[in-house]
Structure formats: structure tokens, C-alpha cells
């Protein structure tokens, strides 16, 4: 199925969870937060968040700033 990750389109396996996606796309999940369709998906829930066709996932972390 097709989803958007940080603004870019990606094909991911049907039935993939948010935890699967993070493992697949990032070298480390340390210090990372996720939002799905504009709502925070708390880190502890990722394994239970089944992704659906067309969803927009944002994966954020701390960078220098402020």
C-alpha cells in the first residue's frame, strides 16, 4: 500500500505497523516521535498502530535550533 513518509511517497507492506515502518526506514528510533495524519502516535503504541492506505506519517527528531 501507498503511504507518505515525511512528505515522500512510499510503498509499504499491507498490514505493516508504525513500528515496522520505523524499523525499515530509520537506523535508530532513539529520540524519534511520530505523527499519523496530524495526530501524535506515542512511542509505546507503535507496534499496535496498523497503517492504512494513503496515510501521512511524520517522523521527527531533535536537531540544532533555537
Amino acid at each position: 500500500m501507498h503511504v507518505t513518509i515525511n512528505g515522500e511517497g512510499h510503498e509499504i507492506d499491507d498490514g505493516a505497523t508504525l513500528a515496522d515502518l520505523v524499523t525499515e526506514h530509520l537506523p535508530s528510533a532513539r529520540g524519534v516521535a511520530a505523527a499519523v495524519d496530524g495526530e501524535v502516535a506515542p512511542r509505546g503504541t507503535w507496534a499496535g498502530v496498523a497503517l492504512r492506505e494513503g496515510q501521512a506519517i511524520e517522523l521527527l527528531t531533535a536537531v540544532q535550533g533555537g
Binding site: N6, H25, P27, E58, L59, L60, T61, V63, G65, G66
Partner: peptide
């Protein structure tokens, strides 16, 4: 110290954290 939240860049090495 302050930091900002931005999209993860998988190619970046080293974190401000």
C-alpha cells in the same frame, strides 16, 4: 540548551542530543 523538532534525515550522522 534549546533544540528544534524536524523531520528525521536518515543520512545524518551524529545527533545534537
Amino acid at each position: 540548551c534549546t533544540v528544534s523538532m524536524r523531520r528525521v534525515d536518515p543520512t545524518t550522522t551524529g545527533s545534537v542530543l
